[in-house]
Amino acid sequence: MITARIIPCLDVRDGRIVKGIRFQGLQDAGDPAERAAAYEAQGADELVILDVSATTEGRRTAAETVRRVRDVLSIPLTVGGGVRSVDDARRLLDAGADKVAVNTAAVRDPSVITAIAERFGRQCAILALDAAAREGGGWEVVVSSGRERTGLDAIAWAREAVARGAGEIVLTSWDRDGTRLGYDLDLLAAASSAVPVPIVASGGADSAEHLLQGLRAGADAVLAASIFHYGETTVGEVKAYLADHGIEVRR
């Protein structure tokens, strides 16, 4: 049976790890390659690097960061942030990413998902979907780091992206991101039953219990940043907790 994946996420800007609240208010939390190696040693199943650089120069740094991380990393690496085209995807894959995540660009032009899936395979084409709860129920897609609400139904968009070639969805609750209140479990359950591809829960996890809740709600993998970055717990400790609660993990 396939095991539940624990995926630390490194938000990187200009070659350093940062972690913000609701994508803003960034604080420095270390060197990406050092941290990546430490997470693999702790038992991380994959790693996500989200490039939050705002400039072209920052993006060039991101490819260099990916290269440095790849040199030391023997587990899969997903890279997202500012991916707009097949060329952007190629640059990151050549640098050492195994999968690339597209977010805003895919909402603006969904054919970018198809193009990446056809060129590199759907196992490389990851949809990063940021969703915010809507008054009256359901969720809508938000883009541009939460600055813009699109009106697009998040579950319908998940279905469309999969039909267009997305092989996995990293599903972030914009309401919960950085709040440490736990994942939006209803959102995870709705997305998980709507599409056949794996769902990676993201946004709001602050404890092993939150990760357990996310997996029980239907996520195939759980992504977290701050709970690991500040040394509050290790991936190994989280896996021991999950195993004690009947979740199959790689140990």
Partner: peptide, 13 residues
């Protein structure tokens, strides 16, 4: 088969 997640993404025994 359709009853499992496809693609199979992740660690398996």
């Amino acid at each position: 088969p359709d009853r499992v997640r496809v693609p199979q993404f992740g660690w398996n025994r």
